[in-house]
Every structure is written in structure tokens, then in C-alpha cells.
Design a protein around this nucleic acid. Structure first.
Length: 351
RNA sequence: AGGGGCAUGGUGCAACGGCAGCACACCGGACUUUGAAUCCGUUGAUCCUGGUUCGAAUCCAAGUGCCCCUG
């Protein structure tokens, strides 16, 4: 009845399947598209492709598969490895959303006549006074707006997120009621391209040159042990240091020049300012500089109150009301006004 | 090769002659569409030999190893 053509990215999981189902029920003309993004040579036919195809079959919607493994490798995986090589902690899901899912994929389906591209992300797009706004999901525990915060309003205009108002159990119930076989499929975890490997195994295989052992030092420069390669550690990390001390040790910093890992106590991790790169403001305009907003420094972080200032360079500084730990270069500082996500910027360093 | 001290899981420390515990580390699980954090849990030890004792990590003796002081 709408006559609108919508493509839904079908991952093979329950979320995207229910997204397609809901849109179909709303009367849209729905087509499923699955991206093959990563399959190691040894992996036989991907289970995800089969599951996605089955979803489309059950929903009786057209379905196609795009083999974008090379594109994914050059756009997302290469960036991931490069950022690790710079001593930072990449967020490949954000990069994938920018370049693949809402970049190249949109262009592709748009060229095929699509009016919208939908996904199973848990976030909401609401009509605001100045246009579409990105809001957190109703179910805050599942909210994924952080991963979408580097996208532009231009993109949000043709994006549909049918699950933003649902809780996960509801989604599974809807899938079960519709008889979808993926209803009970477990949620995906970890990076999609790790596929059973842990990060160390992945890097040993695809970027072994990054795994150079080096010294673990405390704040005074004392040698405490040996690390297995700086990319395996991120700021605030506790596990994997393999050094027994009076109190737990955490990664404070990575010294690329010396290939050294600096560790310290939890209370030494706190900082009250964050320098982040030129931000992406979804509305196109910078927020109110005098106001207190909420910021998140990682997807699963609790929001923290902060005010913003904009430097001449265009970079921003967030001044936190209470110090935060684990402020990590390569991750993103997402800014919220209540439930509304104003935008995001790549974290450069704590101040 | 003078005197003193120490020896307990991987590391650092507890335990009156009476069930060997704690912290850190490791490993596992929960959580999680980034990396983490966090929470829960499991392994795992009395240097060696002999003696005293109903009973020894604990007391005694020798051995071995380490540390400190004095030549």
C-alpha cells in the first residue's frame, strides 16, 4: 500500500529478520539483501547466508547476496589493522556502518530503486523540529545508537530502524509467533570477522608484524614483565598483563616508540577532560556550548555528564563533571541530550 | 670459610601444636554486535631428610637455597 521499496540487510540473525517482517506487515515492498563480508578460506558455506536466505523464503520476499568480502577487507579490516598499528583501539563496527552498510550498500540499493534501507539496529529515528533525529532505543540496555552516531542526517533520511521501540524478548516472541526459524538463534558477539579466532589469533594470521613483544613498565619505569604485542591491549585493560601485584594493574598507556606497555593502578586511570577530533554533528550544527550533555566513551559505557568546547582546529574538548577512566584513542565520544544523540567524534586522548 | 634472618599455590603475604586462608596472576563462565571494564566460579602450596607429639606449616636437628651484618 505504501508502494515504497525497502531493502533490509538480512544478517541471518533474529533482529534483521524481525525488522523485515515488521516492515512487510506495515505494507512496504520489502527485499532482503545479505552481505558476505568475511569468510576465511577454510570456512565452507557460510551458515549466515543460509539462514538469511531461509528468512527471506519464510517471509516470501526477494533475496539477494552480495559478495563484498574484498570491499570489507579493504575498507574495514585494513583500517582495523592500521589503527591498531598506530597504538589505538579501533571500533570497526562504526567504520563498517559508515563505509559498508550505510555507505556502499545504500548506494547499491538506491541505484536499484530503493527508497529506504533498513536494519535491525536498536535505535530510533524520530522527526524533530530541524529534521530527523537519532534517539536511543526504548530498551536502553540494547541501545546501539553509539554505533550509528558517526552517520549523517542525510543517511538517516533513508534509514529505517524498526526495532528501536522493542525489547529483545519481544523481538524473539514476534519471530517465534511468525514461525521464523531464527527466533532462538543466539545473539552475535565479538567482531564479525573474528569468527572463532580471538584477537590474538586473528592478528597472528593477518598482521603478525604487529605482535612484537616488549616491556611492561610501571609509572616509575620499573620493568614488570613482557607483553605479547601492543595491539593486544587497550587502555584500562586488566586481563592479560600477567603481572601479580598488590592491587590489580591496568593498562595506562601504550608507548609505540619504545614498544612499551605502561601499567598502573585503577585510580590512576581517571581523567576529567577528553580531546576528540572534529565531530560529526547530526543536525549539522554544534550543540549549545554552555549546556551539560551526556557523553559516552564506549558503546556499553554509562552516560557521563559533560560540557563541550570547540577548539579553533574544530576538535572538541569534553569537560566531565566526574572523572572517567578508560578514555581511549580510536574509540568515539558520543554526545547525547537525553535520549537524543547529537553526534560523535573520534577520541584523541584524555586531558 | 664468623654472626643473624628467611623458606607456604605462578607472585606477595596469613594461619595459638588441632579443617592451610587472603590478595594479585592464570583459567572458565555470565554480560557484550568494538576493544575493555565489571560480576561469578574452578584449579593450584607448606624446600628436603629425620625426630618430638595422639596430632607439625608451626617445636627440635642436619641438609639445601636465598637475604642481611661483620672480615
Amino acid at each position: 500500500m505504501h508502494n515504497k521499496l525497502i531493502y533490509v540487510g538480512l544478517s541471518g540473525g533474529v533482529d534483521s529478520a524481525v525488522s523485515a517482517l515488521l516492515l512487510k506487515q506495515q505494507g512496504y515492498q520489502v527485499r532482503g539483501i545479505h552481505l558476505r563480508l568475511w569468510e576465511p578460506e577454510t570456512e565452507p558455506g557460510s551458515e549466515d547466508v543460509i539462514k538469511a536466505a531461509r528468512v527471506a523464503e519464510q517471509l516470501q520476499i526477494p533475496f539477494e547476496v552480495m559478495d563484498w568480502r574484498e570491499k570489507f577487507r579493504s575498507e574495514v579490516v585494513e583500517t582495523y589493522i592500521q589503527v591498531l598499528g598506530r597504538g589505538q583501539t579501533p571500533n570497526p563496527c562504526i567504520h563498517c556502518n559508515q563505509t559498508i552498510k550505510w555507505g556502499a550498500l545504500w548506494e547499491q540499493v538506491h541505484a536499484s530503486g530503493a527508497d529506504y534501507l533498513a536494519s535491525g539496529h536498536y535505535a530510533r529515528l524520530l522527526a524533530g523540529q530541524q529534521g530527523v533525529e537519532l534517539h536511543k532505543a526504548i530498551n536502553l540496555a540494547k541501545d546501539q545508537s553509539y554505533f550509528l552516531a558517526m552517520l549523517t542526517r542525510q543517511t538517516f533520511r533513508h534509514m529505517l530502524l524498526p526495532l528501536g521501540g522493542f525489547a529483545k524478548p519481544q523481538v524473539r516472541a514476534i519471530a517465534a509467533e511468525a514461525g521464523l526459524e531464527v527466533a532462538s538463534r543466539k545473539d552475535s558477539e565479538d567482531l564479525c570477522f573474528l569468527k572463532g579466532l580471538d584477537q590474538e589469533g586473528f592478528l597472528r594470521r593477518y598482521a603478525p608484524h604487529l605482535l612484537q613483544p616488549g616491556p611492561i613498565l610501571d609509572g616509575s619505569g620499573n620493568l614488570l614483565g613482557e607483553h605479547r604485542g601492543l595491539p593486544l591491549y587497550t587502555i584500562g585493560q586488566r586481563k592479560g598483563i600477567c603481572v601479580a601485584a598488590e592491587a590489580p594493574l591496568y593498562v595506562m598507556a601504550k608507548d609505540l616508540a619504545a614498544n612499551a606497555l605502561r601499567v598502573g593502578r585503577a585510580d590512576e586511570l581517571a581523567h576529567s577532560k577528553i580531546l576528540a577530533g572534529r565531530p560529526n554533528w547530526i543536525s549539522g550544527k554544534a550543540p549549545d556550548l554552555g549546556k551539560i550533555y551526556q557523553v559516552k566513551i564506549r558503546a556499553a559505557a554509562l552516560p557521563a555528564s559533560a560540557s563541550l568546547q570547540i577548539l579553533a582546529s574544530g576538535d572538541i574538548i569534553a569537560s566531565l563533571e566526574k572523572p572517567l577512566r578508560d578514555i581511549t584513542a580510536g574509540q568515539y565520544l558520543a554526545v547525547y541530550d537525553g535520549d537524543c544523540c547529537l553526534g560523535s567524534a573520534a577520541i584523541i586522548e584524555p586531558r
